[in-house]
Amino acid sequence: MAELPDEDVLVLPPMPLATGRLLEPEDDGPPVRITRLEVVISTEDGGELRIPLVHRHGAWWAP
């Protein structure tokens, strides 16, 4: 694979990407507790990369 410039490489910021522990369902049901949150990256060659986020200090962070 050819070398890519650093500015073109995906970097997740050192900040929370989401907050909260509950998810409201699309119907009228009660909120459900989130147990796992991921960033899903799809590539042009059909590949997929899943990056699980880490729950710390009330927010979801990149590992």
Rank of each mutant, 00 (worst) to 15 (best):
V39L: 10
P52C: 02
E3M: 12
P13F: 02
L17V: 02
P25N: 08
P52G: 03
V11T: 06
T35K: 05
H57F: 15
W60R: 03
V11D: 00
D8Q: 09
E26K: 08
H55P: 10
M15D: 13
V39A: 03
V11W: 01
G20F: 15
L17C: 07
V40L: 12
P31D: 09
E38W: 04
V39Y: 00
L10H: 00
A62C: 12
V39Q: 03
T43K: 04
H57N: 12
E44Y: 05
G47Q: 14
L23D: 02
T19P: 05
L12T: 04
G20E: 10
P14I: 01
P13N: 05
D6T: 11
L10C: 01
P13Y: 04
A62E: 12
P30H: 13
A2P: 07
V9D: 00
V11P: 00
L49F: 10
I51P: 04
P31A: 11
D27Q: 07
A2N: 08
G29E: 13
V32D: 03
W60F: 10
D8L: 12
H55M: 05
D28I: 06
R21H: 11
P30V: 14
V9F: 02
T35Q: 07
E24P: 07
P25D: 07
E24Q: 15
R21E: 14
E24F: 14
E44G: 12
D28M: 07
I51N: 03
